[in-house]
Amino acid sequence: MLGLIDVRGRWRRALLAWADGRADRTTLVDWVQGPSFYADLRSPAARPDFTGVAGLTDLTPAQVEWLGGQEGFAGRLGFDGAFFEWGRALDYQPPGPFLDAGSLRMEGV
């Protein structure tokens, strides 16, 4: 298990996992972490081509769906000695039913 000071930097996550057993290995996740604040941008895989798109009226349904699947949020990272919690002061999507909390493990670093 990592302590708060160990996660400072820019990271790309390879796995998002939930308590119910779901796992996502396809979403691109860029995470920037400072001493206590963070920013997280998640982009779904299979990005459509946006060549020639100058504005919203130029978007195809597939492009709109992909854009709507993006997530971006930022706030303060908390650590209680066992679990991390990403408090979302800013969020591109509406709030979900659960806190964004869990453990972290580094692999291949």
Rank of each mutant, 00 (worst) to 15 (best):
3 G>H: 13
3 G>L: 14
3 G>C: 14
4 L>V: 05
5 I>L: 15
5 I>Y: 03
5 I>T: 15
6 D>A: 09
9 G>P: 05
11 W>M: 10
12 R>E: 15
12 R>M: 14
12 R>T: 15
14 A>P: 04
15 L>V: 15
17 A>H: 01
18 W>I: 05
19 A>K: 12
19 A>P: 03
20 D>L: 14
20 D>W: 08
21 G>K: 02
21 G>Q: 03
21 G>S: 00
23 A>G: 10
23 A>K: 07
23 A>S: 13
23 A>I: 05
24 D>H: 01
24 D>C: 05
24 D>P: 11
26 T>A: 12
27 T>R: 05
29 V>A: 08
29 V>L: 12
29 V>G: 04
30 D>S: 11
32 V>G: 06
33 Q>R: 01
33 Q>E: 07
35 P>L: 15
35 P>N: 13
36 S>M: 10
37 F>K: 08
39 A>V: 13
39 A>Y: 04
40 D>V: 13
41 L>K: 04
41 L>A: 10
43 S>W: 06
44 P>M: 04
45 A>C: 01
45 A>R: 06
47 R>F: 07
47 R>M: 09
49 D>C: 09
50 F>H: 03
50 F>M: 10
51 T>Q: 13
51 T>P: 01
52 G>W: 13
52 G>Q: 13
55 G>V: 10
55 G>D: 09
55 G>F: 07
56 L>K: 11
56 L>F: 11
56 L>R: 10
57 T>R: 08
58 D>G: 08
60 T>A: 05
64 V>F: 03
64 V>M: 04
65 E>H: 02
66 W>K: 05
66 W>Q: 03
66 W>V: 09
67 L>M: 14
68 G>M: 08
70 Q>N: 14
70 Q>F: 06
70 Q>P: 00
71 E>F: 11
71 E>N: 09
72 G>E: 08
72 G>K: 02
73 F>M: 06
76 R>T: 15
76 R>M: 10
77 L>Q: 04
79 F>H: 02
80 D>W: 00
80 D>G: 00
82 A>R: 06
82 A>H: 06
84 F>G: 00
84 F>P: 00
85 E>A: 05
85 E>Y: 01
86 W>N: 03
86 W>I: 03
86 W>C: 10
88 R>S: 13
89 A>D: 15
91 D>V: 02
92 Y>I: 06
93 Q>V: 05
93 Q>I: 01
98 F>H: 11
99 L>V: 00
100 D>F: 00
101 A>R: 02
103 S>Q: 07
104 L>G: 02
105 R>M: 05
105 R>I: 07
106 M>V: 07
106 M>E: 08
107 E>L: 14
107 E>D: 14
108 G>P: 03
109 V>S: 07
109 V>L: 12
109 V>C: 15
